[in-house]
């Protein structure tokens, strides 16, 4: 063993030295590598950004071009229509012969449009595999409101498969009475109920929305909107609400109350108390939000009087 000490020593020293210089070089290299990586990343990022920007620019160009083409097409179309004043038939000499597909697609769109118009009549629908799905639309005057669906099975007997009619509408009762014998009558009566309900709700909403300053808080109503209770005054400037009204809608197929009980607080001036009968009469004959228009104006003078 003793014959090799110098060699062993040398080896040990060499190893130490190697480790030393190796450390320095490696860390240097690592540093360089990191820098290069960072640079590459940055470069990549800018490249990506530029690419994205270029892509966006190209897209904008493309869209602008398409917009201009389309605009030109629309302008041309308008000009042609104005020149011809009215319907262009396919027999017009300069019209290009439309393809059969175009003709059929035109027909499809016009049938679709006519089907949509049925929505305005109050009853629309479509045939299903096992029956018909009806849609009952509702409106208050010219404003169309909610639509309700009724999916009917027609075989072996007429049955309601699914529906979106609110629970407080006496659907089951009506179905029992008419569904098997007269579907048309059934839908017509159901539509009366739905239209009347939606009409009452619409009037109450309008009143709340337009005349909230004349109402004491929110008006109270039940879900069917056939009982409404509210306290009110006739001029929004007042902080007191001397009148209170209770409207009862006895006929569920109508949106005007059958009974309107109006009372006045005992401390109110006699001039106000004398008007309760007139108010009650207006409520029974005029839509709620319109009734407020007509009962408020003459009263204002009275309120201001000393």
């Amino acid at each position: 063993m003793s014959a090799f000490p110098p060699a062993r020593e040398q080896q040990r020293k060499m190893e130490e030295g190697r480790a030393y210089s190796q450390d320095g070089v490696l860390s240097h290299l690592e540093m360089l590598e990191a820098q290069a990586h960072e640079l590459a990343l940055k470069q990549e990022e800018t490249e990506q950004q530029e690419e994205k920007l270029a892509r966006l620019k190209a897209r904008v160009q493309e869209l602008r071009l398409r917009r201009d083409e389309l605009q030109a097409k629309v302008d041309l179309q308008q000009k042609r229509l104005l020149g011809k004043e009215g319907v262009v038939t396919s027999s017009a000499p300069d019209a290009a012969q439309p393809s059969d597909r175009a003709v059929l697609e035109w027909k499809m769109k016009s049938v679709q449009a006519m089907l949509q118009v049925f929505y305005l009549t109050g009853i629309s629908g479509k045939l299903t595999k096992h029956g018909v799905c009806f849609c009952i639309s509702t409106a208050y005057e010219g404003t169309y409101l909610d639509s309700y669906y009724l999916d009917l099975l027609t075989k072996p007997e007429v049955r309601i498969r699914r529906h979106s009619v609110p629970v407080f509408i006496p659907l089951e009762q009506l179905a029992k009475k008419y569904l098997q014998t007269d579907i048309k009558r059934f839908l017509s009566v159901l539509s009366d109920h739905l239209n009347a309900y939606v009409g009452r709700r619409y009037q109450a909403d309008q009143l709340q929305e337009r005349f909230s300053e004349r109402l004491e808080g929110a008006l109270q109503r039940n879900s069917l909107c056939n009982v409404l209770v509210f306290n009110y005054n006739t001029s929004g400037k007042n902080q007191t609400f001397p009148f209170s009204a209770k409207l009862l809608y006895g006929d569920l197929c109508r949106s005007l109350p059958t009974e309107a009980v109006v009372s006045c607080t005992p401390d109110a001036p006699a001039s106000l108390a004398g008007r309760t009968a007139a108010h009650s009469d207006v409520f029974r004959h005029v839509a709620l939000h319109k009734a407020f228009d007509s009962i408020s104006s003459p009263e204002e003078g009275l309120d201001r009087a000393p």
């Binding site: 917009r67 229509l81 262009v88 396919s90 035109w106």
Partner: peptide, 16 residues
């Protein structure tokens, strides 16, 4: 919007 406008007018101004 333009495409819809074009389609609408096309539909409305044609008759077969």
């Amino acid at each position: 919007m333009l495409a819809e406008k074009y389609e609408d007018s096309q539909q409305e101004s044609t008759f077969f």
